[in-house]
Nucleic acid binder design. Structure first.
Lengths: 404, 404
DNA sequence: TTTGTTAATAAAGGCAATGGAAAAAGATAG
DNA sequence: CTATCTTTTTCCATTGCCTTTATTAACAAA
């Protein structure tokens, strides 16, 4: 049993600073006195906390506001540019590394393919990328640390990649490996967990406290935010959403089971259905033109475009995806009752039709009382979502007060 | 957005007191100096905190321990008997009310049938029961409050029963209704949520921080403990585990869907399968003797006894229950990764066979890395589990430090 | 110019934890 | 049995953070 943190004076201060910084980030520009009113702290305390935050370079004064009948308020803003963070996103196909500010805006970014590396080769590749990147970095001083996110099961506490079958990474202590080489504090987390944090810090869902975040790509994963903090599960393997059973005695999955959601809705599944439609069944579809008769050109974007053109074949395929996905989402909603379900992945981007149909489908399947509360949205993170994920993890670890 | 609590000296004290009380409860009898060592607080702080706890009657000194080479330590114990709590458990068939100490041991207990009451009649019945019970109670002074638990969707924050279809209770503000009449602080919570708390406070699972608690009775519900605190979901409707889809196009459920878990594994389903086996199919089973040829005598205990006698018909039925339940549990485990899944309900009690088979079945269905970590146990709460549930809710609300 | 209001800061006081010293109560070596 | 060392608990002065109560700054309205 990990020891719980006890209370001392430092704890009060940390907590209050964290709350004040949060208010400035979310509601800035804002005056000291308004902060005091909002969170019910004495003006004096706010003043001294803000002084510290300004010293640390996290906050700056930015002119004055309009008077409410007396002295004009001095407006405070969050300053994301005084500290940098290094984000590293590992996916099956590539390694992205970037130097960012505290809002996840990239100052410099590099992308490397994974060269089909697996196991130790992959680990070496990652370490090499980090070292090379740091070598070119001017000021290490303001760097708050390195944040690594990856699919698979991660022990975030110890910074170990426990299990990633596609990259063949088993019990890789990435945190210590990177810290040894760089001497920078390093965080390692699961990608879906990081993305749900990012939605909360940088996205449109900052006011929500119970989120279910679902990514659909080569695999299907989920991240959960519960009572305002990421839920990782006992071994850090929560969110194995892709292996929800949606068909009894369905197709075999590499996990050893049959009928796993993943095999019905991930991109390879959709891709192969499109190909089958075109080649085997000789179906007429707008895709044939869009890809210039080259099947290798079928990418998620093509799928979405076809949906938006109301293509018959693609709509059929999408209906099937929705059918399976909505069963799994429905079950998760019954267990979790999140305030919003956020979908992400290439086939979701700009796909309003899918979102609407999904919402209807889920609403039709849940218990009556939840029916009109179902809220399914697309991710608000934009194209650099992985980087925002890494930034969120480090921001959370460094600047957010947590008891445990 | 509900305002977050800011830090002051009172917060520190509350936190430390709560931690110290917890240590004494779980590890007592224990000396002041050992507490200081365990939680890394200064001995001085422990002494003064313990002084307060003794003043409040929550802790008492109980003799001295063996010396470790110096002065003998004074041993401290948790004193559950100086405060009382009133627990009220509402189920579909009865209302239980009891006067208890802080460990959930009943001093006085009364059980009323529900008389098929529904809606307002039921509410009046509950209020009547509470008033009558309080009327006979000698010392109201030490009473910490009233705790009500009930199936269905509950807004625990505001103490409102949002939705209970069987008792036809919709948006009943029970907390205010009871507080108006009794002037005692009242807590209202969902039964499964309360039971998972009880497992953590009074059961064998106090060291676990991520629990999934499943009740099987007339309905099927789930309570979840996440990072050491109960997870209620956005509207308080988390844990609607009974409406997980386990069969496509299965039997119709009263929720409007088909194939809900509930209809395959709850007691009415099992009961009707037994009756069908005996009456329609003329199956030979030990049950016929056990119930003296009267079908009304078929109770969950009979089912369990038959299982333990390896009765063919009953084993078939149980295998079916396990098949459906394990699908749902498997999905939940993938999403949640709880440290342990706790099963409760009449058909689970003393049913080691079911537990073992369930464990095997779930383990065979989860992703490889989880296979040997699957931990499924029977509830440790004993026959008065509802009362322990009510006690846990009030104990948690009154004596457990929480930030939010 | 006077008066009233809002914003920010300064000084003093309250309070919880802490570290050091001391008291209480034994253990142990000789 | 005495002197010394340990362990446990408590007392006291100190530290540090928040709050209350002025005080100053800056402005609006009359």
């Amino acid at each position: 049993m990990q020891r719980q943190r006890t209370g001392d004076l430092k704890l009060i201060q940390e907590l209050n600073r964290s709350i004040i910084l949060d208010v400035i980030r979310k509601k800035g520009p804002i005056s000291r006195s308004e902060i005091a009113k909002i969170i019910d702290l004495s003006p004096t305390t706010v003043t001294s906390a803000v002084y510290e935050l300004i010293q640390e370079g996290l906050v700056y004064e930015d002119g004055v506001g309009v008077s409410n009948g007396g002295r004009k308020p001095v407006l405070l803003r969050f300053n994301p540019n005084n500290h940098t963070i290094i984000g590293l996103s590992i996916s099956n196909s590539m390694v992205k590394i970037a130097d960012m500010n505290l809002e996840g805006e990239a100052l410099r970014k590099e992308i490397y393919p994974t060269y089909q590396y697996q196991g130790q080769e992959m680990v070496d590749h990652i370490l090499e990328v980090v070292e090379q990147f740091l070598f070119k970095k001017a000021d290490i001083d303001n760097c708050q640390g390195i944040s690594v996110i990856t699919p698979g099961i991660v022990d975030a506490q110890n910074g170990v990649i426990t299990y990633n079958s596609k990259l063949k990474l088993y019990d890789v202590p990435l945190k210590s490996l990177i810290e040894e080489r760089t001497h920078l504090p390093t965080y390692v987390d699961n990608d879906a967990n990081a993305l749900v944090l990012a939605e909360s810090y940088f996205g449109s869902f900052s006011t929500y406290k119970d989120l279910l975040f679902i990514t659909i790509g080569d695999g299907v994963g989920a991240g959960m935010m519960v009572n305002g903090s990421v839920f990782r599960g006992f071994m850090g393997s929560s969110g194995e959403f892709g292996h929800t059973t949606v068909v009894q005695d369905g197709v075999r999955c590499e996990c050893g089971q049959t009928g796993c959601l993943e095999n019905y809705v991930n991109w390879p599944a959709i891709y192969s259905k499109i190909v089958t439609g075109i080649m085997t069944k000789g179906r007429d579809t707008v895709i044939t033109e869009m890809i210039d008769h080259n099947l290798n050109n079928i990418h998620p974007k093509v799928f979405v475009d076809a949906v938006n053109q109301d293509d018959e074949l693609v709509m059929e395929i999408m209906e099937e995806v929705i059918r399976y996905l909505s069963i799994a989402i429905k079950n998760a909603v019954h267990l979790f009752n999140p305030e919003v379900v956020i979908l992400s992945g290439d086939i979701i981007q700009n796909n309003v039709v899918l979102l609407e149909k999904m919402k209807t489908s889920v609403a039709n399947q849940v218990i009556p009382i939840l029916q009109d509360k179902i809220n399914i949205q697309s991710t608000s993170l934009g194209p650099e979502f992985e980087l925002l994920g890494t930034a969120a993890v480090i921001f959370h670890g460094k600047f957010k007060f947590q008891l445990s």
